Amino acid sequence: MKVQPFFILSLIVWSLLSSCEQNATPKIYPSKKGVDSAYADLLKIKKVEEKVRDDQMQSKTQVAKVNTQPKKTVAPLPTVDKIVPFSQDNTRDTLKITYAKAKQTVIKKPGQTNTFVFNSDTAKKVAIKLSAADTLANIRINHIKGPVDSIKGGPFGKTLIFDLPAKGNYNFSVSEKPTIKTPYQGEYQVELQLLWK
């Protein structure tokens, strides 16, 4: 007699535990007929909104076509700072690096660009500095280009610290800033230092 209530109690506990093992989130499968009729109204509203948006875009493009006039080409403003292309009398010097430093004195003609080449096999950065007797001299680092075409930068000022992501030969050019009308003529110094930090 005592076994029967125990058996019934264990049967009830087992049924409760087995019912708890069911997934809390029911699985939903797509309907074979398509969208449920309860959501059909929402789809209609969305289609109407898309059509209104398309109509508005078409009317804007039509208005834009009517209002377009031939554009006049405007010459670039002289206040825009840009990379100066190499001059015909461009000079090209290789900087000789000793103990991670190089220093060279250069004489520059007005409108002339000067290009310098240096090798960086192990350095992670380079510091470049231009200096002249005239502190207001119109010279600057025009651009720097690395061994891979994707490594480029410029224009810069008279000082620069540039990351060297690849090993190989880098070159940089020095020129006048095109926004200043007076070209520089005279002597200046280029100082370069390779950095590992």
Rank of each mutant, 00 (worst) to 15 (best):
T105Y: 03
N119P: 09
T105K: 06
T122L: 11
F156P: 07
G153N: 12
K96G: 03
A133V: 13
F162L: 06
Q104Y: 01
K124E: 05
A132G: 02
K129Y: 08
T105N: 04
T159P: 04
G146C: 06
L130A: 03
T122A: 08
T94Y: 05
L136P: 02
Q112R: 03
G153D: 12
I161Y: 06
N90K: 01
K124F: 07
A137W: 02
P155I: 01
G111R: 00
K109Q: 09
P147H: 09
L160I: 12
Q112E: 13
I151P: 01
D134S: 12
A100L: 11
P147W: 04
A102G: 15
A127Y: 09
D149Q: 09
N138M: 09
K158S: 11
I161E: 14
D121M: 10
A127E: 12
S120G: 14
T135Y: 00
I97L: 08
G157H: 00
I151W: 06
T98C: 00
I107N: 09
N138T: 06
V148M: 13
T113G: 08
P155F: 07
I97Y: 00
K109R: 08
L95W: 10
F116E: 02
K101R: 09
N90T: 11
G168H: 11
I139T: 07
I139N: 06
Y99T: 13
I141H: 01
